[in-house]
Amino acid sequence: MAEKLEFTLSGSSSHTAKLFKYILYNILLQRNVYPDDDFEIERCEGMNHMAISDPEVKQYVETLIQQIDQWAKRQELERVAIALTSVDTLEVIERWTFFVKTKGDAVMTEDTLSEQAGRRQQDFQSQMRRLIVQILNINNILPILDPNNVTFEVYVYTVKGAEEHPRWMRTDDAPIIQGDTEHARLTDIDTADCNVRSFVSYKKPAF
């Protein structure tokens, strides 16, 4: 009788990290943190994505995503926040928050490995498109930002006791938006790899 081998499909953490990579790039593009000319097309998981071309920013994002991938593999990732800040005042003017619940790696047989990997890629593509559309739609209701006066910071929240990376600075929480604030909720994302609940908070424009 032939032995039936089992494999662990460990692509879930990578998909979770890639999801946040292109979420970040889309926010930076749509919110005019960097001009259109600073982006290029990047192919990933059978899709064309907009990615930053600036080498310094790209290296920062790649290092960040590698660490998110490690936390996701250990199911230590809880939340990611992207704060947009005024260069002049150092005030947080917009904050995108993503609550994450990663799922464990799937165990399957040799017969179903290729099929399940294909389904996960299709799942990633579908949910990525859905997120991009949501960011585009919400961008239409958000205040217009001065492209020459905005920078960004990424805050990653993990479970207590998670392994720390020496390159990251520990902080209690991301800065909050001062004054009148509005909120917009994004539709929840549920993939084979993770659940994501998200919303954006932004400073109410003064008229």
Rank of each mutant, 00 (worst) to 15 (best):
T89S: 02
V154T: 04
G104D: 15
Y157G: 10
N139S: 05
L145E: 08
W168Y: 02
E110N: 05
R79I: 00
V154E: 04
S126F: 13
Q122E: 15
D123Q: 03
T171W: 03
T191V: 10
V133K: 15
V92P: 15
I82T: 05
T181V: 09
Y155F: 15
V154C: 04
K73M: 12
K101H: 01
D172P: 06
N149Y: 02
F152I: 09
I177T: 07
I177L: 07
E76H: 14
R170C: 03
L136Q: 15
F99C: 01
R120K: 06
P175H: 01
S114N: 13
A192K: 08
A184C: 02
W96I: 05
V159D: 06
N148C: 12
K103H: 00
V133W: 13
V80R: 07
R185Y: 11
V159C: 12
R185P: 07
G161I: 03
I82A: 08
N137K: 09
I144H: 02
I189P: 05
R95E: 05
D146V: 03
A192E: 07
A117F: 08
F98S: 00
T109D: 02
R120I: 03
V107A: 08
K160T: 14
N137V: 00
L90R: 12
A106C: 12
L145Q: 07
L186Q: 05
Q134C: 01
V156L: 10
Q178L: 08
A83V: 13
I189D: 11
Y157R: 04
V154Y: 06
I176K: 06
L84E: 11
V80C: 03
K73P: 10
V133Y: 14
T151S: 08
G118H: 09
P166F: 09
D105A: 13
T102E: 09
I189T: 03
M169P: 14
S114Y: 15
V92F: 14
R170K: 12
R120D: 08
R119Y: 11
Q125R: 11
V87K: 15
G161C: 10
P175G: 05
R185T: 12
P143K: 06
F152D: 02
T181H: 01
H165F: 10
A174R: 00
Q75E: 00
T102D: 05
L131E: 13
I176S: 10
A192L: 02
T181A: 04
I176G: 08
N139T: 15
I144G: 06
N149R: 02
F124C: 09
T89I: 05
R120S: 06
A174C: 08
F99H: 07
T112C: 11
E182L: 01
L131R: 12
N149T: 11
L142N: 04
A184G: 04
E91H: 13
I138E: 00
V92E: 15
